[in-house]
Simulated assay, not measured.
Amino acid sequence: MTYHFDFAALLPYWREFARGIWLTVQLSAVSTVLGFVLGTLCAIGRADGSRGVKWLVAIYVEAIRNTPLLVQVFIIYFGIATLGVHVSANMAAVIALVVNVGAYTCEIVRAGIESVHKSQIEAADCLGLSRFQTYWHVVLRPAIERVYPAITSQYVLLMLASSITSQISAEELTAVANRIQSDTFRAFETYIVTGVLYLLLSFVVRVCLWLFGLAVFVRRRKLGTAI
Rank of each mutant, 00 (worst) to 15 (best):
T2I: 12
A18Q: 11
E189L: 03
S202A: 13
F185A: 05
A143R: 09
P149F: 01
V30C: 10
A9I: 11
A111L: 05
Y13W: 11
E171W: 09
V196P: 07
R221S: 15
Y13H: 07
S31W: 14
V147P: 12
P142L: 08
T165H: 02
I113C: 11
G102C: 06
L157K: 11
V57T: 08
G84F: 09
L200R: 08
E172V: 04
I227T: 12
G79E: 09
E107H: 08
D183P: 00
Q167E: 14
A123M: 07
V109M: 09
V71C: 07
F78G: 10
F17H: 01
C126T: 13
R19K: 11
E172F: 01
V25E: 03
A9W: 00
A18K: 03
V116M: 11
I95V: 15
H86E: 10
T134Q: 10
T2G: 05
V33I: 15
N66Q: 01
Y155G: 02
R206Y: 07
F17N: 00
V87Q: 07
D48M: 14
Y148A: 00
R179I: 13
Y104F: 15
L214T: 08
S130P: 10
L11K: 11
G128W: 06
L56F: 15
T184A: 03
R219E: 15
A9R: 03
Y198K: 03
A124W: 07
G45I: 10
F203A: 12
L97I: 13
M1R: 05
A150F: 09
Q72H: 08
Q72N: 05
P68K: 01
G79T: 13
A175M: 12
K118R: 14
V73I: 15
P68A: 00
E62Y: 08
S50N: 00
T190Q: 06
A93T: 14
V53L: 07
R15A: 10
F188A: 04
F188V: 12
Q120M: 05
E171M: 12
A89E: 08
E114H: 10
V176L: 03
S182R: 08
I168R: 07
A177N: 02
G195R: 14
A187M: 11
A177P: 01
R219D: 15
E62W: 10
T105C: 14
A96C: 07
T134F: 00
T174G: 00
L34I: 15
L200A: 13
Q72E: 02
R146T: 10
A63I: 14
F132R: 12
G224L: 05
S115D: 10
R110L: 13
V37Q: 06
N178R: 15
S28P: 11
F7V: 06
S182W: 01
L157H: 05
A47F: 08
L11V: 14
K118H: 14
A58F: 13
A18D: 03
E122W: 06
T82N: 12
R131G: 00
W55M: 09
R110K: 14
R186G: 07
L69E: 04
Y191P: 04
F217T: 05
S115E: 04
E16I: 01
A161T: 14
A187C: 02
C42I: 10
Y155R: 06
L11Q: 04
I95A: 10
C106A: 13
G49Q: 12
G35E: 11
I76Y: 03
A123F: 06
L41C: 14
G112C: 08
L10F: 04
E189M: 01
T190V: 09
T67M: 06
G224R: 04
